[in-house]
């Protein structure tokens, strides 16, 4: 098992007597992309701010690569790159100057590192223009470059695709995925865009009203455990499955649906074929993350 790059334990935050974050815990392993999902005002940004040291937790601790943020701030932070709520840069200088400036603040960042980051986010052409004249998307790109120049092991992105066009979102996603795959960087990305999280992340933490209500892999979340068959003789197949595998199936428009463990599926399918059934379609039935998200965050009984 890979070591955990970020470990958040029992984090809590109170602002002006209002408990905004209650006991949030999760962790991220190396090379993993964790989606941080939650509706507006659920406390995503507040949590991420505490993780990057911008605000102090009123309870709990954050450990980055084994260094506690409380007691070992500098070592912990040297492993973090982040964009919190928008890519805010110095408007009165060029994107490149911005990067140079920030590179100076970390040990051992070379000119090559800056150029690499710029190439990675595809800003070579405009990097020497003033940030003031950049479009939102360009700022997002330079923002990402800014978070990457010092080669952090943990990347924290708060709604990074705000203001990007579909093409931009796609590119952005591919960049992040590629980074995680090739450099083993771990990513914590917050979003309220479910599709984005679904496409990008390995695991998801869902937060609502300052509490984590679900911690799971995307696969786990979307899978319902149900399998759907389309066969030529549905009625016969239904009885066969009942007798041979003790499976209760539902027949609906020529399709059979049953709750079955994924591990049993190959055996069942082989037997069906051997018995002469013609299977035209088999699938794990998935629910959309959106439905899950809505049901989790709307239904107060789940918390």
């Amino acid at each position: 098992m890979k070591s955990s790059v970020l470990k958040v334990s029992h984090l809590a935050k109170k602002i002006k007597k209002l408990q905004i974050i209650h006991d949030v815990s999760f962790d991220i392993r190396e090379g993993e992309i964790l989606g941080f999902l939650g509706p507006n005002g659920s406390g995503k940004t507040t949590t991420l701010r505490m993780i990057v040291g911008l605000s102090k937790p009123t309870g709990g601790d954050v450990t980055i690569c084994g260094h506690s943020l409380k007691t070992d701030y500098v070592k912990a932070m040297s492993n973090v790159g982040c964009i919190i709520e928008g890519p805010d840069l110095y408007g009165y200088m060029s994107g490149y100057k911005n990067l140079e400036l920030l590179a100076n603040m970390s040990e051992g960042v070379t000119k090559q590192d800056i150029d690499d980051a710029v190439t990675l986010v595809g800003m070579e052409k405009r990097i020497h223009d003033k940030v003031d004249v950049y479009s939102m998307g360009m700022k997002q790109r330079v923002g990402l470059a800014q978070a990457l120049i010092h080669k952090p092991r943990l990347l924290i992105l708060d709604e990074p695709t705000n203001g990007l066009d579909p093409q931009g979102i796609h590119e952005f996603r591919e960049i992040v995925k590629k980074l995680a795959r090739e450099t083993g960087i771990s990513v914590l990305v917050s979003s309220h865009l479910i599709s984005e999280v679904q496409l990008m992340c390995d695991r998801v933490s869902i937060i609502n009203k300052g509490r984590i209500i679900k911690n799971a892999s995307v696969e786990e979340l979307v899978s319902t455990g149900q399998v759907v068959w389309t066969v030529d003789q549905p009625l016969k197949a239904q009885t066969f499955l009942k007798e041979r595998f003790a499976l209760d199936t539902v027949l609906e428009h020529q399709t059979l649906t049953a709750l079955v463990g994924v591990d049993r599926l190959p055996g069942i399918n082989r037997t069906l074929v051997e018995e002469g059934f013609k299977i035209t379609y088999v699938d794990n039935k998935k629910q959309t993350l959106e439905n899950l998200f809505l049901s989790l965050t709307d239904n107060k009984s789940i918390q």
Partner: peptide
């Protein structure tokens, strides 16, 4: 006021 403090204070510098 231009929120750049965020990139300034999230470096490995006390």
């Amino acid at each position: 006021s231009n929120r750049t403090v965020k990139i300034l204070l999230t470096r490995a510098v006390p």
